[in-house]
Design a binder for these strands. Structure first.
Length: 433
DNA sequence: GCTCCACCGGAAATTAGGGTGG
DNA sequence: CCACCCTAATTTCCGGTGGAGC
């Protein structure tokens, strides 16, 4: 029931595209670097793990206040009392998850020393995908499924939401003094998909639990407007305390990167100009530290591959391109056949208005002997592509001649061609022109 | 001003697939 | 076996709507 174990589990189920990509690169590069090392006898990178996304540093610069407050809030657990529910807000890459994980790790240690049992299930609502899966993950994390009695387990499907929730609460009840601090990362995506029922049940749960057990909730949200979507009752009880993580400034990012670089690289391998450039580029994207560290890692990997002995600014620029290209490639490659056909249709269309794209799409479908989807569905898929940044679309009104969208591909044709070339369901003639 | 095109985009319903408890 | 649960993708239905042209 250690936190580390839970963390690994969380990593295992993660389907985040970015994570997936970087993990993949990681193993590729591992092999590369072994070869590289054999050839040159030395490497740039001394500790690769410190550049991965889920590495939690010992100390988080510029987050002392936040760390302290959270620690104070959670500390009451050590006295057997229920901590306030807590809501953390902040843009991606502002250190929310890192701070929480850091504090929880230490809390666990302390609790262990004192012989107090605290259960801290950690769920990422986004990678869990569905509301039910969130419950399942929680149950799994809490060890409910080790129960001998089958009737108390939470299966991965088949139960109703209410039943699953009840079983989790019963478990807490039965174990008497179970102290639970439930952390839900990216709660906003949970609420968007399933409403706030689950949160409601958990916030209310303490009234039903008797015998010394309790459950506290920590929600982590990327969206600052998330609270508006909650039912007032849930809102007030969930945010007994709340905290906003502000984006890092460029100067702060520089410091963070410099610290991290010390851990990750051998001495004098990376120029401060390169670090500053990483910071500047990530700074433009809302001060996203994750992005900055990503850039640093990829830049180093590029330099390493070229067998250079240090990382320069140009590698950072190359890294930027590579990251973008890889994400696009991954998304394109893994999209459904219909989505691919739609992209082809958009490429073939002249003005990119909906009707035209839909006509081209339908005829492509007929050629390939695919049943075409409805136009409604197509607009939906297009707007999904828009959100992924593969396509840009804005509505234009042409007065008399109706309203439509102007849809344009924002990815190089080459990237698309490369991503699609392995798909057997697209005939080759679709790809020309 | 008013019309009316050619769509947009929300909401509910349907379909299909994988499971459960009694 | 039957009633019922959950999800995901898609269809069905339908109430808007910006602005060129009358």
């Amino acid at each position: 029931m250690s936190f580390l174990m839970l963390e690994r589990k969380d990593r295992g189920v993660c389907v985040d595209i970015e994570l997936y990509r970087s993990n993949k690169n990681l193993s590729d590069d591992l092999v590369d670097s072994i070869f590289e090392k054999a050839v040159s006898g030395k490497t740039l990178i001394k500790n690769r793990r410190t550049l991965t996304i889920d590495y939690v540093p010992e100390k988080l610069p510029f987050r002392d206040e936040e760390t302290k407050t959270i620690a104070q809030t959670l500390a009451v657990v050590l006295k057997g009392a229920r901590p306030s529910n807590l809501l953390l807000f902040g843009k991606p890459g502002t250190g929310k998850t890192a701070v929480i994980k850091n504090v929880v790790q230490r809390l666990h240690q302390k609790a262990k020393d004192l012989g107090i049992e605290v259960t801290v299930p950690f769920v990422n609502a986004k990678s869990a995908n569905t509301g039910y899966k969130v419950l399942y993950e929680i149950a799994e994390n809490m060890g409910i499924n080790q129960e001998e009695e089958k009737k108390l387990q939470v299966h991965f499907t088949g139960l109703s939401m209410g039943e699953a929730t009840d079983r989790i609460l019963d478990f807490i009840q039965k174990k008497k003094k179970l102290h639970v601090v439930l952390i839900i990362d990216e709660v906003d995506s949970l609420v968007e998909r399933n409403g706030d029922d689950i949160l409601y049940n958990f916030t209310r749960a303490n009234e039903q639990i008797s015998g010394g057990g309790f459950i506290s909730l920590i929600g982590i949200s990327n969206s600052l407007t998330f609270k508006d979507k909650l039912d007032p009752r849930v809102r007030s009880s969930l945010s007994e305390e709340e905290m906003v993580f502000n984006p890092y400034t460029v100067e702060q990012l520089q410091k963070i990167l410099a610290d991290r670089a010390k851990l990750a690289f051998n001495d004098d391998v990376i120029s401060s100009a390169a670090i500053n450039l990483c910071a500047a580029m990530a700074g433009r994207e809302n001060g996203d530290a994750r992005k900055a560290i990503d850039l640093l890692r990829v830049a180093a990997e590029i330099a390493e591959r070229e067998r250079l002995t240090n990382v320069e600014e140009k590698h950072v620029r190359l890294a930027q391109e590579k990251i973008e290209k890889d994400t696009n490639h991954e998304v394109l490659k893994n999209s459904t056949t219909h989505t691919k056909i739609i992209i082809l249709a958009i490429m073939k269309s002249k003005n990119g208005n909906t009707g035209e794209v839909y006509d081209i799409y339908s005829s492509l479908c007929n050629n390939a002997e695919h049943e075409p989807l409805t136009q409604r569905r197509i607009t939906q898929i297009i707007s999904e592509l828009d959100q992924l940044g593969l396509v840009s679309s804005d509505v234009v009104s042409k007065g008399r001649y109706g309203r439509s969208q102007r849809i344009k591909i924002t990815v190089p044709t080459l990237t698309i061609r490369e991503a699609f070339k392995d798909d057997p369901s697209l005939s080759t003639w679709d790809l020309v022109d």
